[in-house]
Amino acid sequence: MITGNYKTRYQDDESIWNNWAKRWGFALSIVFLVVFPFVADNYMLLLAGQIAIFIIAVAGLNVLVGYTGLMSLGHGAFFAIGAYTAVAIHHEWPGTFPLITLVVSILVAAAFGVLFGLPALRVKGLYLAVATLSANFIVLFFIREHWFEEWTGGVRGTETPNAVFFGVELVSQQAKYFMIAPIMVIMLLFAQNLFRTRFGRALIAIRDKDYSAEIMGISLYSYKLKSFAISAGYCGAAGCLWAYFFPAILPEDFGLNMSITLLVCLVAGGMGRTLGPIFGTMLILLVPEMLKVIVSMVTDGDAMAQRYFSPMRDIVFGLMIIGFLIFEPMGLVNIWDRFWRFLSRWPFAK
């Protein structure tokens, strides 16, 4: 039974970590993030970097889909815009300070977010999903176009720069991890704060009952567009870090496929919760890797067996997602909540 959650000031009641479990949980995850790169090998660091970047993007998608209740299938495009903006900046001004690149990428992606968010002022739900779908194709079309080839590398893709902090180039996986992880933590905290204050509450209100929100004095137009901007900005940040993290990028890395992966991560994790993107991304990106390990263990390097087992991976993964939608439609955070509910009442009730 968790007790002793007694407070005498509103400030304590309003804080993010309003009980010991949350405080310790946060402290432990920070310790984990710091210790991890020293014990992990390069392969694990590669995965970790990828996951951290995806978490930022999914947290951005969560702002729009989870909190504002607007559907989007176009966020891969904003990811691409962030990545290519970073590349273009370094093409024009090599050695730009990485945080400046990051901020510019966010702003450019946010601007595109507003542009592609304009249909949201008129349509909702599935119709909006279809309208945002176009973002993938339009953005990738221009990236492939030869007029911009100098900056984007066109269809053949382009090499990407490494981040340089005060003359130190971040080359190793470990060094890059130490750039990405703090940015992820800060952006997650920002999102968490946003949704316990005026601005975020207004977005949730729009999701839950839009006409009622309007009566409260919330301008639907401006808040919906701002939500698009923030969420695209997060994806832009993820794209920028992606460009720094990988040695090269291709237009095919982004687009519809990525948009859907982001959405799947969000749904698997749980929409409208801060922890949702974290859980969901870890699950969706780690399970295929685990299946790879399992397959290689089962087949034991036998090429013939591998040919039959490899497609199984996708089937198992697909079945897992279907299972999730049926048995845990609220996502992994729901399991997490149940666990804590159980613990806080144990041994009195289930």
Binding site: F190, A191, N193, L194, T197, R198, F199, G200, R201, A202, A205, A213, M216, G217, I218, K226, I230
Partner: peptide, 16 residues
Amino acid sequence: LGGHIRLRSGFWTSGW
């Protein structure tokens, strides 16, 4: 949410 119109903070100050 009823207090929305009386508060001033925008997304930037809210986020921090």
